[in-house]
């Protein structure tokens, strides 16, 4: 199985910060997988995700998509962002338009598609997320869960091969979480790789094919859940497992 996305020895320190956020993080992601990214607060999970589609550029190390290093040019970045979708933790930080339809159409419009194709993509993504009835509602009239689904649809409308999700499911009610995981499963069936950064050990254990553990800016484990949860050191690090 060849690697779809590779992080090779990434180092990164946020401007103005004394402590590096990443210190030699390496990870290889294969296609069509369910991946749970675990780690304590400040372990570098979000920073790693921001490197995956070129938002952040590593001080040292390399990110590779299909074996080719990322190019940090306008064309290179558009190419990687078309394939690697990133859903942010707080939907209010992602939804920029008061119109649900216009917000979801933003990504596909940037891909230079025709209006007809954009409409088709928006319809497909809203259908998959079960929010077709919200299209003519204003963003500020939606509930938190509905906003999360709209934010997800806005990324899915770009038809990424890899979907990176930053703790979106925390703070949602069980029904809404179930909806979102059902969407993830549909995507994996279609060959999309879904990586979810989470603190939920139950999700990691029951949903994921691979569990990745980060600690102090490094990836310290990447293995099937059975293996990760059998390791007493990792369990001690992650906290009491359910």
């Amino acid at each position: 199985m060849s690697a779809l996305l590779e992080f090779d020895d990434l180092h990164y320190t946020f401007p103005g910060s004394a402590i590096p956020a990443l210190r030699g993080a390496s990870l290889s992601i294969a296609s069509g997988q369910r991946i749970a990214l675990l780690g304590r607060n400040g372990a570098g999970k979000s920073t790693l995700l921001l490197h995956a589609n070129g938002i952040l550029r590593p001080a040292a190390g390399q990110v590779r998509l299909d074996g080719a290093p990322l190019e940090y040019t306008r064309r290179g970045l558009l190419r990687v962002r078309r394939q690697v979708g990133l859903v942010f933790q707080n939907p209010d930080d992602q939804l920029f338009s008061a119109s649900v339809l216009q917000d979801i159409s933003f990504g596909p419009m940037n891909l230079g598609l025709s209006i007809t194709e954009v409409r088709r993509r928006v319809a497909e993504a809203t259908d998959l997320c079960g929010i077709s009835n919200l299209l003519d509602r204003p963003t500020h009239a939606l509930s938190g869960g509905q906003k999360s689904l709209v934010a997800l649809a806005g990324v899915l409308a770009m038809a990424p091969r890899i979907l990176l999700v930053d703790e979106t499911t925390s703070g949602l009610d069980p029904w809404m979480r179930h909806q979102i995981f059902a969407i993830f499963d549909r995507l994996v069936e279609q060959g999309v790789t879904v990586l979810l950064a989470t603190h939920d050990l139950t999700v990691a254990r029951q949903w994921a094919d691979t569990v990745v553990v980060m600690h102090e800016g490094r990836v310290i484990a990447s293995a099937p859940p059975v293996q990760v949860f059998a390791d007493p050191d990792l369990r001690a690090l992650l906290g009491p497992a359910p």
Partner: peptide, 21 residues
Amino acid sequence: QQIQTALESRGLDGSLRVLPL
């Protein structure tokens, strides 16, 4: 800043192009 990051992540290219209503 967050919005800017999120927009870039969805391929922001200068202006906010969206579907007409």
